[in-house]
């Protein structure tokens, strides 16, 4: 298991496609939004938390199809399935690796990008914590989506169609927590609900993902 995690981390660092791209995309989205809505900083302050959450979500989406597709292409997915590891464990490790190379860097970068969007000062801790708690759910749900389309040639677009509806609750609670934090309102309730979604998906979705993988590989 740890070997698989280390290999996935090493691969994404070496081939560069992993977190570098996601972060760059996040930065670009954050830059483009003010260009789209105008330079008024009061407006930016009001929408900053939501924009940063959406940016993080889309950046996360970007690298999802690599989770299984690369292993499927070079045959190592077949070999992993026959290895002495439960498939559920493999799926969970893959999701964890995805979170470590996308979700975590995005979480760390978000406060910096908050400066660009004039995020109110007391919003920073809430933004950071909400992303820290919420991005694991994005990775786990995304892994499920990736498992569904693993056999398909061009699954990227389909993947976003499948995964985005599933992202709705996470986005709502996450952005709500960050937004309430930025507005100086109590934000613990949405944060707790967000944590519940993350914990629930991390506990249950690997079983569904493993099932989808089994179906796809036969």
């Amino acid at each position: 298991m740890i070997a698989l995690l280390l290999r996935d981390l090493r691969l994404s660092v070496r081939s560069g496609g992993g977190f570098g791209l996601g972060l760059a995309f996040f930065l670009l989205v954050t830059i483009l939004v003010p260009l789209g809505v105008g330079p008024e900083s009061a407006l930016h302050a009001r929408i900053a938390a939501g924009i940063l959450w959406i940016g993080a979500l889309l950046a996360c989406l970007l690298s999802l199809d690599r989770i299984f597709a690369l292993d499927h292409e070079d045959g190592s997915l077949d070999l992993l399935v026959t290895a002495p590891m439960p498939l559920e464990g493999i799926v969970a490790v893959k999701a964890l690796a995805h979170w470590l190379v996308t979700g975590l860097p995005l979480t760390l970068a978000a406060p910096l990008l908050g400066v660009l969007l004039n995020l109110p000062v007391h919003g920073y801790p809430w933004l950071f914590v909400s992303l820290l708690v919420g991005t694991p759910a994005l990775s786990v749900i995304g892994t499920f989506g990736a498992a569904l389309i693993v056999g398909l040639k061009r699954g990227g677009l389909l993947l976003s169609l499948l995964v985005l509806p599933l992202y709705v609750p996470t986005l709502i609670y996450g952005a709500e927590a960050a937004q309430r934090g930025a507005d100086g309102l109590p934000a613990l309730v949405p944060l707790a609900l967000l944590a519940a979604i993350s914990a629930g998906s991390a506990a249950l979705l690997p079983f569904a993902s493993a099932q989808a993988l089994r179906i796809n590989l036969r």
């Binding site: 290999r7 090493r10 691969l11 070496r14 070079d74 045959g75 190592s76 070999l79 290895a83 002495p84």
Partner: peptide, 27 residues
């Protein structure tokens, strides 16, 4: 049982040793 298909399951950016070490540690 172990199976070797026409695909080798190699990762292009890992070295020969790392590729093999990975499968060794998996097993």
């Amino acid at each position: 049982i172990t199976y070797a298909s026409h695909l080798d399951g190699l990762k292009a950016t890992l070295t020969v040793r790392e590729n093999l070490q990975f499968w060794a540690r998996v097993h």
